[in-house]
């Protein structure tokens, strides 16, 4: 295999390699579907190492329980209703917070983005508020809401709002001025212009904002549960930790990781579906 060091593909070879589904026995090209096979091998190796290292005594099983034990503990947990309540709480805090900040950010973003005066007069404030870490609000959340879900929501909304809001502003600013003027010259009103011109071209940005916001929202939902003690997976972890239940801590971390994967994959799928619609509409009208 002679692969150039930068992974640069030969010019016209790429489509041939990509289109090829079946493997011919004569040449040693990369396996079709080889990527997922390699990925499975990688995941398998990872689990194997995780199993062997504590069993061989390289690291004390007290600190790193073998993979099988952690997964077994996780399996047991899956049968306990309390676990699902915690998952539900985490998902509720995440989803509700994300929904609130999404609606607020989209509405405000479109309003401020399409009125230049508003944009100019708010930008300094936004630039100041945006980098404030949302964890700074933890003490305030505790004082105001205790361990209620509002505490979680405050942190989640503050953190994810800016991610989405900034992207919406970029999106509105990126609207093709020619399209905007064309729409104006055909007598489209402001609302119609937003619906048919601004919204479609800002949509990719809105979805990028949603993707970034969704990840940050999950981080902050778990953070709130860890530090404030509002119910959810984060709180379960902190309880397991203070009880010294190492295996359970690992199991719950794996669970939050799985939740994170579901969130990431879900948002990416949504993005692909919506943007697929978007590009097909664009190619119909624009070309």
């Amino acid at each position: 295999m002679t692969t150039s060091p930068t992974g640069a593909a030969p010019p016209s070879a790429a489509p041939v390699d990509k289109g090829e589904r079946r493997r011919s026995g004569t040449r040693s090209r990369p396996l079709p579907g080889g990527r997922s096979l390699l990925g499975a091998i990688g995941a398998g190796c990872f689990l194997l190492i995780w199993e062997i290292v504590p069993r061989a005594g390289v690291v004390s099983p007290q600190y790193l329980p073998p993979a099988s034990e952690v997964l077994a503990t996780l399996g047991e947990r899956l049968l306990v209703p309390g676990f699902w309540v915690a998952v539900g709480d985490t998902v509720a805090g995440w989803g509700l917070g994300l929904a609130i900040s999404f609606v607020a950010a989209v509405v405000l973003g479109f309003l401020v983005g399409s009125v230049p005066v508003l944009r100019r007069f708010t930008s300094s404030t936004v630039e100041f508020l945006r980098p404030i870490p949302s964890v700074a609000l933890i003490p305030l959340a505790i004082l105001m809401y205790g361990t209620d879900i509002q505490s979680t929501l405050l942190l989640v909304v503050y953190a994810s709002f800016w991610q989405i809001y900034i992207q919406v502003l970029y999106g509105v600013a990126d609207v093709d001025p020619v399209a905007e003027q064309t729409a104006k010259s055909y007598g489209l009103g402001r609302l119609a212009r937003i619906r048919y011109v601004v919204w479609p071209s800002a949509l990719p940005y809105v979805l990028t904002g949603l993707r970034l916001g969704a990840a940050v929202a999950l981080i902050l939902a778990v953070t709130a549960q860890l530090t404030i003690g509002s119910p959810g997976l984060g709180q379960e972890i902190s309880v397991a930790q203070s009880g010294g239940a190492t295996t359970l801590v690992y199991a719950l971390i794996v669970a939050t990781g799985a939740l994170g994967v579901i969130v990431n994959v879900g948002v990416r799928m949504l993005e692909r579906r919506v943007l697929h619609w978007h590009t097909s509409v664009r190619s119909e009208t624009a070309q």
Partner: peptide, 16 residues
């Protein structure tokens, strides 16, 4: 080979 493992680690909320 390492991509799925990386995807998983990335998805874990760091505070845990």
């Amino acid at each position: 080979t390492v991509e799925p493992v990386l995807e998983f680690f990335r998805a874990i909320p760091p505070p845990v």
